[in-house]
Design a protein around this nucleic acid. Structure first.
Length: 259
DNA sequence: CCTAATGTTTGTGC
DNA sequence: AGCACAAACATTAG
């Protein structure tokens, strides 16, 4: 699940922890830790307070206070974050827990495709996050156009490329392209001004609704609500096409998103 | 048993 | 350099 809109939901979860002091860090599965072991993580995090939580693309960044260290959460395809009562039962895929006097922050992840890091400072954070483009929620139309300029790859592939713009994944890209009426496999080089306008409008709308929901909502009036076997376009009641673009399963409507 | 799954990284080759 | 493609990571659901 976790794309920009989902991580925005996890950001709200993280903020529920407030500025509480972290007592014990429990690592149930060190397989999610990147660049640090469970002992070292506990040593450096226990006793700190949660600080400011932010998001860039699909990354959730939780500062620790005092100091300049921060936790870097990535959720891969199956990760999530939960704020739970201290005595509430855990989940089998809870991998790391941050205990406080007022509750537990639980990092859950079934597949463990990405994971959790601890950065000492902003320099380490930037190295860990890599070359991310501007966040897809705050980028402007012209900024996005600028990021796409001079490229000729498939549009969906470019939108999902985190170095072009950060935060869009498979579902969001499909939904935005469907709402913009642009074929996912069309070339960036063929985008006209009108296409960019529709792309930007669709991006804003999908992210606005998705951020509020903390997910890409499966509305029946959206592509996402009709994805999957025998899905039909809610605009035309024609069968959705299914294929592979940018290496990911892609759904589109052959009528409103012609090649 | 086999396939696919909403992500990132790394390597290969054009 | 830009880009497409495949594999790897680990696990579950259908």
């Amino acid at each position: 699940m976790p794309e920009l809109v989902d991580v925005e939901g996890f950001l709200r979860v993280a903020r529920r922890a407030g500025r509480r002091r972290i007592g014990e860090v429990v690592v149930h599965d060190a397989g999610v830790l990147r660049g640090i072991g469970p002992r070292e993580l506990a040593r450096r995090v226990e006793g700190c307070r949660f600080g400011v939580a932010t998001r860039h693309g699909k990354w959730l960044i939780v500062a620790l206070a005092p100091g300049s260290a921060r936790l870097l959460f990535h959720f891969g395809m199956t990760g999530s974050l939960h704020w739970c009562d201290t005595d509430s039962p855990g989940h089998r895929h809870d991998r790391v827990e941050f205990h406080t006097a007022g509750g537990v922050l639980r990092y859950r992840d079934m597949r463990k495709l990405t994971g959790l890091r601890l950065a000492r400072d902003e320099v380490e954070q930037r190295r860990a996050l890599g070359d991310l483009g501007p966040d897809a929620l705050s980028v402007s139309r012209d900024q996005l156009a600028e990021r796409l300029r001079g490229r000729r790859r498939q549009l969906k592939s470019a939108l999902m490329d985190q170095t072009v713009v950060a935060g869009l994944g498979n579902l969001l890209a499909d939904e935005i392209l469907w709402q913009a009426c642009i074929a996912p496999a069309s070339s960036v080089a063929d985008l006209g001004g009108g296409d960019l306008d529709r792309l930007d409008k669709a991006r804003r709308e999908v992210l606005r609704v998705g951020v509020r929901a903390g997910q890409v909502p499966a509305r029946r009036s959206w592509l996402t609500g009709n994805r999957g076997r025998d899905g039909r376009c809610p605009r035309h009641d024609v069968s959705l096409r299914r294929g592979s673009v940018g290496g990911r399963t892609t759904f589109w409507c052959p009528r409103c998103q012609p090649a």
